[in-house]
Design a binder for these strands. Structure first.
Lengths: 233, 233
DNA sequence: GTCAAGAAGATTGTCGACAATCGACAGAAC
DNA sequence: GTTCTGTCGATTGTCGACAATCTTCTTGAC
């Protein structure tokens, strides 16, 4: 009646069932790197031809990307890269504040020791990437930081929601280019949040995180508004 | 340059692309009516055979249901009706509190006039269904009430998240049977929320809603815990 | 009797093909 | 010149079939 717990995994289980997942990553990268722009059409047959496989896995990958918010589908018309609007970004950040603040409060109420290790690593990583002048990877470290908060909150559902909006957030950040003139700023803005968590100050952590995300919200929407004006002018 | 705003829509737009949607509804109903129980396997071929169509639309429907949380998929194993645990329900309700409280605050800050009409209708509907002794439809009216709050919050993202957890919430409620001994209680517990919104009291509305959902959270988890004990005993 | 190895059946993953639908263009009617 | 209609190419929606994988049952050794 007892489960045998995989007796010595010598070889890393090569992920079969990885085909769809692979396609997901390819398309995700293409969007997040700007090779596919908002509004662009994703033709199943085209992508399938390019990758040398059938339409079925491509279609499935597109459906997954739809749930993650990177593409939208129209009946009988197919998939398109999601258009990003100022309103959508604003709504997105409001939801993030709502979720992450609740998550960090629970995190502090529980045992934040393990989380703190990871959070510290991410901030340091942001610093390193600031010196290396790699804004794209820096954004990923930023997202990883915030994901960790949700992950260690003790409520798995927070992670689910975060993952569903993470890609779209990343897309909006990517479209902007860089948030701050001084790349070191990104790491610094996370410090107060870390400190409050380390001090086991739940309310302080919530406030710090709300301020942190709220600031990003204003900066991002402002930059994006200007981009939009210049673009349509 | 002016748009003609659909000059008199005589015919209602009939939704083509309804095949997959139809399958979604059929499976959803089967689960929510208890004909498919948690843990049950959903075989694509079986369902396709029963409905007299191919596996493709069934598969697509299953993927949609996965995003709505009613089924889970395992690679190379297929789809199963989601198992409901006490912890999952608790996490679900915590997320609901987080989302809906933020939504109602924004709702009151904006213009709640239109929302109030719909909310009143839902409460009255609950009363009627309590007299008619139709707990299943009553649950749907309950969900509709809470969805309206998200819908009129002005942040479309709140609705998106709500829809993604609505079915699972409904499933948990369905499994329990009935929440209150007195079916009228359900309508009554919504009144304070309605009153606070009508009074344009944002903080009061948030508090009332948090209390309302929090109470439901305790009742549901308690009942479910007992069910679980009896079931496994 | 217990456990491991292998065969048989069932189910998912993927494929290529056909039908239904959409968007664009050309042509006819006014 | 404008508007409607018919046709065409392209794309999605659906289908049935095959290969890969998992599950179950049987077989055999200890």
């Amino acid at each position: 009646m007892s489960m045998d717990p995989a007796p010595d995994p010598i070889f890393a289980r090569l992920d079969r069932a990885g085909l769809v997942q692979h396609v997901v990553r390819l398309i995700t990268d293409a969007i997040l790197q700007g090779r596919l722009k908002p509004g662009d059409r994703l033709t199943e047959s085209g992508i399938a031809r390019e990758l040398g496989l059938s339409r079925a896995p491509v279609r499935e990958a597109a459906r997954l990307l739809e749930n993650r918010g990177l593409v939208v589908s129209q009946p009988n018309r197919g998939f398109f890269v999601r258009e990003v609007t100022v309103e959508a970004i604003d709504s997105l950040y409001e939801l993030r504040i709502c979720i992450e603040c609740a998550a960090v409060e629970r995190l502090v109420a529980g045992d934040p020791a393990q989380a703190l290790i990871g959070l510290r690593e991410r901030i340091d990583e942001m610093r390193d990437l600031a010196e290396a002048d790699d804004p794209l990877s820096q954004i990923e470290a930023d997202m990883a930081f915030h994901r960790l908060i949700c992950l260690h909150s003790g409520n798995e559902r927070f992670v689910t929601v975060f993952d569903q909006i993470a890609d779209e957030t990343q897309l909006s950040l990517m479209l902007i280019g860089r948030l701050y003139d001084d790349p070191m700023r990104m790491a610094e803005t996370h410090e107060p949040v870390f400190d409050a968590i380390a001090a086991r100050d739940a309310q302080g952590a919530r406030a710090a995180l709300e301020y942190h995300i709220g600031t990003a919200r204003r900066v991002v929407t402002d930059i994006f508004r200007k981009l939009k004006e210049d673009g349509s002018a």
